[in-house]
Simulated scan of single mutants.
Amino acid sequence: MRWFLTVLGVIFGIAVFLFLDYALPSRQTVRISDAYNRLTDIGANAVFYASPD
């Protein structure tokens, strides 16, 4: 009987872990590389940049 309760407890623990792994949000880490500032020449499109969205 003891082994049955142990197996049942392990199965229950795995089920709880799988449910929480599915239900809780996960965090994803993103590494941004080669980021730099660049100057963009507006030129003839200045009307489109000046108008409100």
Results as ranks from 00 to 15, higher is better:
Ile32Met: 14
Gly9Arg: 05
Ala44Leu: 14
Val47Thr: 13
Leu8Phe: 14
Asp53Met: 03
Asp53Phe: 04
Phe4Glu: 04
Gly13Asn: 14
Asp34Ile: 07
Asp53His: 06
Arg27Ser: 09
Met1Ala: 02
Gln28Lys: 13
Arg27Val: 10
Ala35Lys: 15
Asn37Thr: 11
Arg38Met: 09
Trp3Gly: 06
Arg31His: 12
Arg31Leu: 03
Gln28Pro: 09
Thr6Tyr: 08
Ala50Lys: 08
Asp34Ser: 10
Gln28Thr: 02
Arg31Gly: 09
Val16Tyr: 02
Arg38Tyr: 07
Tyr49Pro: 05
Asp21Val: 07
Thr29His: 08
Val10Ser: 06
Ser26Cys: 05
Asp41Ser: 12
Ile32Leu: 08
Leu24Asp: 04
Val16His: 00
Val10Gly: 02
Val10Ala: 08
Ser26Glu: 04
Ile14Pro: 14
Leu18Trp: 08
Arg27Gln: 14
Leu24Phe: 05
Arg2Ser: 09
Tyr36Thr: 15
Leu39Cys: 02
Trp3Met: 05
Ser33Gln: 13
Phe48Leu: 11
Leu39Arg: 01
Ala44Trp: 06
Asp41Met: 01
Tyr49Thr: 10
Ile42Pro: 12
Ser51Val: 15
Val7Asn: 11
Phe48Cys: 06
Ala23Thr: 01
Asp53Thr: 07
Thr40Leu: 10
Phe4Leu: 12
Thr6His: 12
Leu39Gly: 02
Tyr49Ile: 08
Tyr22Leu: 06
Gly43Leu: 00
Met1Glu: 08
Val7Lys: 02
Arg38Asn: 08
Arg27Phe: 04
Asn37Gln: 12
Thr6Ala: 11
Leu24Cys: 01
Val47Ser: 15
Ser51Glu: 08
Ile11Asp: 00
Phe19Ser: 00
Arg38Ile: 02
Asn45Leu: 15
Asn45Cys: 09
Ser51Lys: 10
Leu5Lys: 03
Arg38Ser: 13
Ala44Glu: 10
Tyr49Gln: 13
Leu5Ala: 15
Pro25Cys: 03
Tyr36Ala: 12
Asp41Gln: 14
Arg27Lys: 14
Val16Arg: 00
Asp21Tyr: 13
Asp34Leu: 04
Leu18Gln: 01
Thr29Leu: 07
